[in-house]
Structure formats: structure tokens, C-alpha cells
């Protein structure tokens, strides 16, 4: 008898676990518009980011949700369980096709691999918008983001100027195989080439991740006795690298140039640990890509590339930037 009761209890527990998840998680209705005064959502879209564990993409999602609310769109924001897994992104896109969404917005974790999924959307006549990172194939309505070669170039110049055009530098590259990482690195290298006295000691990928950035920087610090500046494809890698430099007591000698702004970076610039960063406005990327999809579904024609401006932020204008964010 006791066993039967415990069996029932287990079943009940299982049900609670399942139903708890389904109801507690942010429901889709969250973004379905202001209740009451609007009709049922006209369009249904899926917004897929590279990782739900990186603050940058959470900011993008915030923008996307704001647009969904303003435009009365049913928006489902998801990311792979394993951060930066393009295979899982493909799975989510397949699921969305099955689900019969009106549009798919995806930030590809790999520019090449995502094309098979985009082609599937093309076959099913579902339009695709790719903010932030480009896809190498398939028909995409539009791409919205910062000009990443330009981003790398601008940051690279700032890096070289920060050490007065003379010294040793290292680069932390983003995840290999996606356009944002490769284009930013290309830009950095282009800028370094313009300064004959700046030596690029090493450039390796750290996958846009904090932990990988820390490990890579630890290796660099072991290998090279003199590092004057460290450029990075995003801020997570830099924050990891700063930890590594702190542990090695070499924080003072290295100027960190990074990209993206969140509380970490702002605090870093205020304390002087980070020399400069660029802001590519994730909120706008999210908002505009949903709006662009909306416009496309409404019959508008869009340019295939939409560049958003980048703003450089350093100790001189950090206070203005913080003020403008609030």
C-alpha cells in the first residue's frame, strides 16, 4: 500500500514539474501586445539568438520584445541550450517551420551552417531576417547590424593610438566561422597593418566567452613578457582576460579595447580597467529586425544590408553615455 502511495506521489511530482515549467516560464502572451485594446496578434515570429547566457543577446531580445509589443506581434524568443550551437539553432528553425510562423529572425551562430536551415525557410516561403551576424547563403530579407569590419578597424586604430603607435598587441577573436568574429578580426588586423611599430604577437579565438577569454589570456601572459594592448571581438572575452591579467599582476601594463557595453564594461571604463569600447546598440538591433520583418510582411521592400552606426565609448564620454542610457 505504501508503495502505491509513493508511486502516486511520484506521478504527482512529475506532473507538477512539467506543468510548473510550462506555466511559470515567460509565456508567449507576454509580448502579444497590450491586452484589451488590440486584436489578436496579426503575425507570429520566432527570434533566435546565439546564446541565452550572454548579456548582449538578452539586450537584443529586450529590443525585439519591445517591438513585438508595439506592433502587436506574437514573438517567441529562444536560444540554443548549448550556447552558440548552430545545430540547435537549425532545430529551432525546423520547429518554427512546423509551427507555421510568419517570419524567422535568427542571429546565426555559424554563417555557413545556418544556410541549410534558411534554405528550408525559403522552400516553405517563410521570410528570414538575420540581425547582427550574416548568413553565407539562402535568401535573406535583410541583414541589420554594425559594419563589423569598420568596427574592428575603428577599435584597432584606437588600440594602436592608445599605445602611441608602438608596442606589442594580442587579439581575442570571436567564435570561428561566424561573420561578426571574422570581420572584426579582419578590421583589427587592417588597422594594425597601418602602424609599422605595432607588433601583433598572437591572435586566437576565444569563442566570445568569458571563461575562454580568461584561459587564452593566461596562455598569452605565460608566452609573452610584454603585452601593451589587448583587442577583443566582444566584451565577455575581455572581462575574462582582465581577470587573467589581475591574477598575474599585469593589469596595469595592458590596455584593453573591447566591444559592446553593459554594466561590467561601464564599470570597467569608470575604474580604468577597460580603455575603450564600442556600442553597437543591441536594443536597436532587436527592435529594428522585428520591425523590418513586420514591414516586409506588410509588403515593403527593404535594402539587403542595413548598417547601424557604432559609437566609441571611453573615459571621456562614459558619464554622458551612462546618463543617456537611463
Amino acid at each position: 500500500m505504501k508503495k502505491i502511495i509513493s508511486l502516486i506521489l511520484v506521478m504527482a511530482l512529475a506532473l507538477v514539474v512539467f506543468s510548473g515549467c510550462v506555466s511559470k516560464a515567460p509565456p508567449v502572451e507576454d509580448t502579444a501586445g497590450n491586452s484589451g485594446d488590440t486584436a489578436a496578434p496579426k503575425y507570429k515570429m520566432t527570434f533566435i539568438v546565439k546564446s541565452m547566457a550572454a548579456s548582449f543577446f538578452l539586450d537584443v531580445i529586450e529590443g525585439a520584445k519591445a517591438a513585438a509589443k508595439d506592433l502587436n506581434i506574437e514573438l517567441n524568443c529562444v536560444g540554443p541550450e548549448t550556447p552558440f550551437s548552430v545545430e540547435e539553432q537549425i532545430q529551432i528553425i525546423e520547429q518554427s517551420i512546423t509551427d507555421g510562423v510568419d517570419g524567422v529572425i535568427v542571429i546565426p551562430a555559424d554563417s555557413e551552417a545556418i544556410t541549410t536551415a534558411i534554405e528550408k525557410c525559403n522552400d516553405a516561403n517563410i521570410p528570414v531576417v538575420t540581425p547582427n551576424t550574416k548568413a553565407n547563403g539562402g535568401d535573406v530579407v535583410t541583414w541589420i547590424g554594425a559594419d563589423n569590419v569598420e568596427v574592428g578597424y575603428t577599435l584597432g586604430k584606437i588600440m594602436c593610438e592608445s599605445i602611441n603607435g608602438k608596442g606589442n598587441v594580442v587579439l581575442l577573436e570571436g567564435t570561428p566561422g561566424n561573420s561578426t568574429a571574422e570581420e572584426r578580426t579582419e578590421g583589427y588586423k587592417k588597422a594594425i597593418d597601418e602602424y609599422p611599430d605595432v607588433v601583433l604577437l598572437d591572435s586566437q579565438p576565444a569563442n566570445f566567452e568569458r571563461e575562454a577569454g580568461m584561459t587564452l589570456m593566461e596562455n598569452f601572459l605565460q608566452m609573452y613578457d610584454n603585452i601593451d594592448a589587448c583587442g577583443s571581438g566582444n566584451k565577455d572575452m575581455t572581462m575574462g582576460a582582465i581577470e587573467a591579467a589581475k591574477n598575474a599582476n599585469r593589469l596595469e601594463e595592458i590596455k584593453f579595447i573591447t566591444f559592446d557595453t553593459d554594466e561590467d564594461v561601464i564599470a570597467g571604463i569608470q575604474s580604468g580597467e577597460v580603455f575603450a569600447t564600442g556600442n553597437q546598440d543591441p536594443f536597436s538591433q532587436g527592435y529594428l529586425s522585428v520591425a523590418a520583418m513586420f514591414a516586409h510582411l506588410g509588403g515593403c521592400r527593404l535594402p539587403s544590408i542595413m548598417h547601424l552606426p557604432m559609437k566609441v565609448i571611453d573615459s571621456t564620454n562614459i558619464d554622458d553615455f551612462v546618463a543617456s542610457q537611463n
Binding site: V28, V78, Q95
Partner: peptide, 12 residues
């Protein structure tokens, strides 16, 4: 859970 639009963390 993906069809239902449940966030990744809850899936895990």
C-alpha cells in the same frame, strides 16, 4: 517545450 515557447533555462 520549444513549440510552447518556453525559455531555454526551463527546458534544462
Amino acid at each position: 517545450l520549444t513549440l510552447e515557447g518556453v525559455s531555454t533555462f526551463w527546458v534544462l
